[in-house]
Design a protein around this nucleic acid. Structure first.
Lengths: 195, 195
DNA sequence: TTTTCAACTGAACAGATGTTCAGTTAGATG
DNA sequence: CATCTAACTGAACATCTGTTCAGTTGAAAA
């Protein structure tokens, strides 16, 4: 019963990616078969190959698109003024951007091992580009005399780790509203890099 | 050629666990087959079932043993004096304990999705028990007037996230000696919870 | 109405999967 | 010496894996 009403590719295509993101976030790349994914979408396994050359490309494309969007979105959100304002914008952006994209964040973080070497290198480059945004802000703050830290690179990693760890547990923890969590994290980051 | 010299179970047993930890940390639980694991150990796949009832139990036992040891080791390292000293001991312990156990940390952190529901609950309980150690220290610090923070529970998660993120990249980054990394992290944590 | 073709099916491919178990081996035991 | 048995092999089980492709469908174009 192909093509019940109109062209399907612009319906099935996004469906494949949504289902893949959801299933892989829940069970892991290696644990999700193309047949499970197809069943979730509502097609046979063979039909998936109209939307991806293979399983590996499906994973890579999702991770790359996510990271590219993170970087572009932050560059738009960045006030590009003083370091204090930029750091605040970074913390706020990071939390608010990632929260409604928990599956994509989870996949981009947990499935690095399942990328081919070339794909891994490409994703690492993007990840590094995002981290470099934060590192630049910290170094600007040092130059302005607004921040003080022992090592900007490691502090960058520490802050990213702190913020990203957030998404491994916020789902279950409905205790506090987003605004409050954001304020708590801002307080921690702000004090940690203060002079 | 069974049993070439002496009893093998006390040699093969640890070998199985070491190989499983290494392979699963590198490729993921679902991506490592019992045959790959057996080849790494130097036996046939069937022989593994002398050392674990099934693949799932192998994963669970490794995670449980690791977490139990983390908790017991910290309880011995805990000076149980003032909050400032205890926090410093926690940060130092966490970094120094986890560093030479990178594979175990990685598996305990990344493979939660591959645990059966009952096993997941058991592991979560242990993870929570470790986090509770840190939370207790932070609350003691608040009571003593040594620390100030908006929310002790979330600050606990943030600090753990910050410290644990460390182990996803330290391998590659031989730039700084351990003592220095420890000092950098202590500086960040100390300032973040300061009054 | 006939033709076209994007979208999909369903079967097939060769090989991998976790797990079981009857049988084999060789060091330890009496 | 013979016996015992922990430790292991190797084959088998049913099922699943990613991927390919000839064939089918039905809405849209001519």
């Amino acid at each position: 019963m192909a093509r019940k009403q109109g062209s399907h590719s612009d319906i099935t295509g996004p469906k494949v990616r949504e289902a893949a993101l959801r299933l892989i976030a829940r069970h892991g790349y290696a644990a999700v078969s193309m047949r499970q994914l197809a069943a979730e979408v509502g097609v046979q396994a063979g039909a998936l190959y109209n939307y991806t050359p293979d399983k590996q490309a499906l994973l890579f494309d999702m991770m790359r698109d996510h990271l590219v969007d993170v970087i572009e979105s932050f560059d738009r959100a960045d006030p590009k003024t003083d370091a204090q304002s930029r750091l605040r914008a970074f913390v706020s952006f990071h939390i608010r951007y990632h929260l409604p994209r928990a599956d994509a964040v989870f996949v981009a973080y947990m499935e690095l091992r399942n990328l081919s070497p070339e794909n891994f290198a490409a994703i690492e480059k993007l990840r590094r580009a995002y981290e470099d945004r934060l590192e630049a802000i910290l170094r600007q703050g040092e130059a302005e005399g607004a921040f003080a830290m022992k090592d900007a690179r490691i502090t960058t990693r520490a802050i990213i780790g702190m913020l990203t760890g957030f998404f491994t547990w916020y789902r279950q923890e409905g205790r506090l509203p987003l605004e409050e969590v954001e304020a708590i994290y801002w307080d921690l980051v702000c004090k940690a890099v203060a002079r």
